[in-house]
């Protein structure tokens, strides 16, 4: 037996766990980012209910929801969008290739969203009018990424 095929075999076998590890990592990061979005929507539901005046304004509830929202927002980063986790590559992904084509802009928009969440945190416990105004900032922050980086239905 010649040594070269054995050498190649060793290499190809060694590659399998790496591929499996990447797939697992992609799955974990997708669960993470999608879970974060769900939790942000949950906190926004309380803030939005008050903004729409469907629920009475309660500064303690609003302040807590906004603090949670800001904390969740701060976890969003390009780390949650590993290569291979885009739409068409990973099942259930709506992440568009533009995320990886223009990473600097992606980060700028994430930063903008985090700033809007911080604005909400400062405003929510103040009064209803401040909360309503901050709701537009947060919406614009979320929308700026979804406009460019999320697959439209």
């Amino acid at each position: 037996m010649r040594p070269i095929p054995a050498f190649a075999l060793t290499f190809s076998l060694a590659a399998f766990p790496a591929v499996a590890q990447d797939a697992r990592q992609i799955e974990r990061m997708m669960e993470g980012r999608q879970g974060l979005m769900t939790l942000m929507a949950h906190e926004l539901g309380k803030l939005g209910g008050m903004a729409k005046e469907e629920m009475p304004y309660d500064e303690a509830v609003a302040g807590k929801a906004a603090a949670n929202l800001a904390a969740l927002a701060s976890v969003i980063s390009p780390e949650l969008f590993p290569q291979g986790s885009g739409e068409g590559e990973a099942e259930g992904s709506e992440a568009l290739p533009a995320i990886w084509e223009q990473p600097d802009d992606f980060v700028t928009k994430i930063n903008g969203m985090q700033e809007a969440a911080a604005t909400m945190q400062a405003a929510a416990g103040t009064d209803l009018a401040a909360l309503q105004a901050a709701m537009r900032d947060v919406g614009a922050g979320c929308g700026s990424c979804h406009e460019t980086y999320r697959q439209k239905d």
Binding site: M40, A41, H42, L44, G45, G48, A51, K52, E53, E54, M135, R136, V138, G139, A140, C142, G143, S144, H146, E147, R150, K152
Partner: peptide, 24 residues
Amino acid sequence: GDIAEYLSSGFTPEYDSAGGQMAD
């Protein structure tokens, strides 16, 4: 109220946000 909020902040009643051209 939901429609008016969507046109103000872009949030749907489930607090997803407007995407695509509607964000603009």
